[in-house]
Design a protein around this nucleic acid. Structure first.
Lengths: 218, 218
DNA sequence: ATATAAAGTTAGAATAATCTAACAAATATT
DNA sequence: AATATTTGTTAGATTATTCTAACTTTATAT
């Protein structure tokens, strides 16, 4: 059994790896808000437990065992987010902090019930995939809205940045997952887009925003 | 903010006090499965924080502040139990262990949602009162079934021992809260009762069981 | 290619929560 | 009342997680 602290390191390792590929001590340190020497010693500990492959001055890597355990924590996190959003009327901008705590609950039955009540969802409220019971994640191939061309119509499938502020911004524009979005024009200068969706006939989205919206062909 | 460990001490202090009146170090030590010296030092720490009144060799007492904080933890515990039972299809014999973990979640919104979805319940699945938002508990005046007389008809209002085994025993006899129970006879020798309820015309309940069933006038 | 900066490690200390061993006080028993 | 038992405390050690300060290695930039 891993401690809550160890679980947080595993999860961060997993998340950074899936965003950035490589994980180094410095990144992990910043992400967790924990000083580098502490991270180093925890890496040695996790290496002892065969969860991390650790060699001095080399990038950090989760072992298969480490990936599985991290995946299972993320499964609990995302199932919880979905449960909060779908069954407890939380907004997608409010689910993260609670899920961050509930992901550490030790009770397979609890998460199995969630899963069942939700009808075995494949994604969380932000469109991120929920790992399966073996901790395996399968990412769908999405494109950034910012990479799409004028005239295309796409479906909003996921959001990348899940900060509360970004999600509140999306709320204010009534942008939510599943929406069909038509790209009306793209400003050459700053790559901002004018798009149409739902009741919005011409909404301007900055490139910063478009880079964080993942879409699939409609 | 109190640590998870401190919360467990507070809760145990509160629970023992409401069962046994006085709390001594030895009792608390046994309840928590923590050695006496550790308990002593934690009591000094909680006294520093004005949560416990502590004097060497004297019985332990929660301060008003301590009672309130303990009550709020128990509120979260019991709300959770109710939520698990009512909204997630857990049996009353399975809710305790999960609630024991979720009671430490820091998120007023989370418990407010539970409360709301449950329609502001006053009791948990075992009939124990849910403390209010100030941590205050109000116990209803119940009687033990074992103190009732032959011929009386009473309503099962709460169960005292919430061990999984006891609750499974009650399940096997289809005994649940709210049930009207008629006392058909009492065996003078061992004080066992023959009772009728629901589809059960003549069920024998030992005194051990009857002492753990709290009832009110039907 | 050398100097500077950034990243990583080692060593040693701090805090929270726990323990055991030994001692002290309160309570119970003869 | 004297003794034995139970309960409670003190002192000191242990483990997990964190820190700072000092040093080393690797990467970057002249």
């Amino acid at each position: 059994m891993n401690s809550l602290t160890e679980e947080n390191y595993l999860k961060a390792l997993f998340n950074i790896a899936s965003e950035a590929g490589e994980v180094n001590v410095n990144e992990l340190s910043k992400r967790l808000g924990i000083k580098m020497p502490t991270v180093t010693s925890m890496m040695k500990k996790l290496a002892e437990k065969k969860l991390v492959q650790y060699e001095s001055y080399k990038p950090l890597r989760l072992t298969e065992k480490g990936k599985k355990e991290a995946g299972l924590i993320i499964r609990k996190h995302r199932l919880t987010e979905m449960f909060l959003a779908e069954k407890m009327n939380f907004g997608w901008e409010d689910v993260h902090d609670v899920a961050e705590q509930i992901e550490h609950i030790q009770s397979p039955a609890f998460f199995d019930k969630m899963d069942e009540l939700l009808g075995y969802p494949k994604i969380d409220p932000h469109g991120s995939p929920i790992p399966d019971k073996n901790g395996k994640v399968t990412w769908k191939e999405y494109n950034k809205l910012s990479d799409c061309k004028m005239g295309e119509t796409v479906k909003l499938a996921a959001v990348i940045n899940t900060s509360s502020d970004f999600l509140k911004y999306l709320n204010s524009r009534e942008l939510r997952l599943g929406l069909k979005i038509k790209i009306k024009s793209i400003e050459a200068f700053d790559k901002s887009m004018i798009v149409a969706y739902g009741k919005h006939a011409a909404e301007v989205l900055s490139n910063i925003v478009c880079e964080r919206l993942m879409v699939e062909k409609a």
